[in-house]
Amino acid sequence: MSARNDVPPSTVGVDLVDAGVEVEYVDGRTTFYRGVPEPVTDTLTTPPKKETHVLVTDPTETEGVLLYINDLKTHDDILESTGAGRVILDDGETEEVFPGVTVRRPGGMRTEVEADPTLARGRVFVFVEDDWGEASYEFVTEDDAAGGESETATDTA
């Protein structure tokens, strides 16, 4: 199968823990995104050539939908068996991938993500990684950011 098709995501398990975010794929395997996510209130722009994964949780924060943006490594059948989805965008393209979550390719092999957690009706995380490191981000409202009380991956109440 091709590694360049859009693949719709399925619901995956989510566990928000002190050390990061754990995702349980449909096939039972897990992946762990390390670190407390850095809060973001507007547009997140990734460095060039980084893998970008967007996770939107449900209001209970125990399930979510995971989407790989412009992933060219993972074959469709693997994505389908894990429940992770994928969207492929050309330079200049924009797509609303979930309600309140938009991704675009501005050029230069970068990805931009904008999200409104209120419209998404859950928490919105972005994980950016390559072979040398990873970073985690969470979109928060302006009110949360201004109050200095932004939620982290460990706040599950």
Rank of each mutant, 00 (worst) to 15 (best):
M1H: 03
A3S: 00
R4Q: 10
R4V: 13
N5I: 13
P8L: 08
S10N: 11
V12Q: 12
L16R: 12
L16A: 08
D18H: 05
V21T: 10
E22Q: 14
E22Y: 13
V23E: 08
V23L: 14
E24R: 14
D27Y: 15
F32P: 10
F32L: 07
Y33D: 01
E38T: 10
E38P: 07
D42K: 13
P48I: 05
K50M: 04
T52E: 05
T52L: 01
T52H: 00
T52Q: 05
L55F: 10
L55H: 11
T57Q: 14
T57E: 14
T57P: 13
T60A: 15
Y68N: 03
Y68K: 04
L72S: 09
D76P: 00
D76E: 04
L79R: 00
S81W: 15
G83C: 05
A84R: 07
I88D: 04
L89W: 11
D91T: 13
G92C: 11
E93T: 08
E93R: 05
T94A: 07
P99M: 15
R104L: 15
P106D: 09
T111C: 03
V113P: 08
A115W: 04
R121I: 14
R121S: 13
R121M: 14
V124N: 12
F125C: 01
F125M: 07
F127E: 02
F127L: 01
D130W: 02
D131A: 07
Y137T: 11
Y137D: 01
E142Y: 15
D144P: 00
A145H: 09
G148F: 02
E149H: 03
S150L: 10
S150D: 02
T152E: 00
D155N: 07
